[in-house]
Amino acid sequence: KLETFPLDVLVNTAAEDLPRGVDPSRKENHLSDEDFKAVFGMTRSAFANLPLWKQQNLKKEKGLF
């Protein structure tokens, strides 16, 4: 399991300012399950079932792209 970080560490943070080991294209993977659901309004599995373009739009909207 990946290390999780608080939302404010990941949202609207440039790649070079992210904690070590965080993939800038997969910031959402480093949210706790609770934060993930609070941000996206759905579970990880529901998010994973969305088309890629919709996932990317949601990530942009939430500052996690």
Rank of each mutant, 00 (worst) to 15 (best):
K1G: 08
K1T: 04
L2V: 13
L2G: 15
E3M: 13
E3L: 14
E3Y: 14
E3R: 11
T4S: 08
T4F: 08
T4M: 09
T4A: 07
F5M: 15
F5L: 13
P6T: 13
P6Q: 09
L7R: 06
L7K: 09
L7T: 09
D8R: 08
V9R: 11
V9F: 14
V9M: 15
V9G: 07
V9W: 08
V9A: 09
V9Y: 12
V9T: 08
L10H: 01
L10E: 08
V11H: 05
V11D: 07
V11G: 06
V11M: 15
V11P: 03
N12P: 03
N12D: 12
N12K: 07
T13H: 05
T13G: 05
T13Q: 10
A14S: 12
A14E: 13
A15D: 15
A15H: 15
A15R: 11
A15G: 08
E16S: 10
E16D: 14
E16G: 12
D17M: 11
D17P: 05
D17F: 09
D17A: 11
D17Y: 04
D17G: 09
L18V: 06
L18K: 05
L18E: 06
L18M: 13
P19D: 05
P19I: 02
P19A: 04
P19C: 02
P19G: 03
R20S: 15
R20M: 12
R20G: 13
G21W: 05
G21R: 07
G21Y: 05
V22C: 06
V22H: 03
V22Q: 06
V22I: 12
V22D: 03
D23T: 03
D23R: 02
D23W: 02
D23C: 05
D23N: 10
P24M: 05
P24N: 06
P24V: 06
S25T: 13
S25G: 13
R26H: 15
R26Y: 13
R26V: 10
K27L: 15
K27S: 09
K27V: 15
K27E: 05
K27N: 05
E28T: 02
E28I: 09
E28V: 02
E28F: 02
E28C: 03
N29Y: 09
N29M: 15
N29G: 08
H30I: 14
H30L: 06
L31Y: 01
L31P: 05
L31V: 05
L31H: 02
L31I: 06
L31F: 01
S32D: 09
S32C: 09
D33T: 04
D33Y: 05
D33S: 07
D33L: 04
E34D: 08
E34W: 08
E34M: 12
E34C: 10
D35S: 04
D35E: 05
D35T: 03
D35V: 02
D35Q: 08
F36N: 00
F36A: 00
F36P: 00
K37A: 11
K37M: 02
K37P: 06
K37V: 14
K37C: 12
A38Y: 02
A38E: 12
V39T: 13
V39A: 11
V39Q: 07
V39N: 05
F40V: 02
F40W: 01
F40R: 01
F40K: 01
F40Y: 04
F40H: 03
F40S: 01
F40M: 06
G41R: 09
G41K: 14
G41N: 07
G41Q: 10
M42Q: 04
M42P: 00
T43G: 12
T43V: 05
T43S: 14
T43F: 00
T43M: 04
T43H: 12
R44Q: 08
R44Y: 04
R44A: 04
R44P: 07
R44E: 05
R44H: 07
S45Y: 09
S45R: 12
A46N: 11
A46L: 13
A46T: 13
F47S: 01
F47G: 01
F47P: 03
F47Q: 00
A48T: 12
N49Q: 10
N49R: 13
L50R: 01
L50G: 00
L50N: 00
L50I: 06
L50T: 04
L50C: 02
P51E: 11
P51W: 00
P51Q: 00
P51G: 03
P51I: 02
P51R: 00
P51A: 04
L52W: 11
L52F: 14
W53K: 13
K54A: 11
K54N: 08
K54C: 08
K54D: 09
K54F: 09
K54M: 12
Q55S: 01
Q55D: 00
Q55Y: 01
Q56M: 13
Q56P: 00
Q56N: 14
Q56E: 15
Q56V: 13
Q56T: 10
Q56Y: 13
Q56K: 10
Q56S: 10
Q56D: 14
N57T: 10
N57K: 14
N57D: 15
N57F: 09
L58F: 06
L58K: 04
L58W: 02
K59P: 01
K59M: 03
K59T: 03
K59R: 11
K59Y: 04
K59E: 04
K60C: 09
E61F: 00
E61A: 09
E61D: 07
K62A: 14
K62H: 10
K62F: 02
K62L: 07
K62P: 02
G63I: 01
G63F: 03
G63N: 05
L64P: 04
L64I: 10
L64G: 05
L64C: 04
L64M: 07
L64N: 05
F65N: 15
F65H: 15
F65Q: 07
F65V: 11
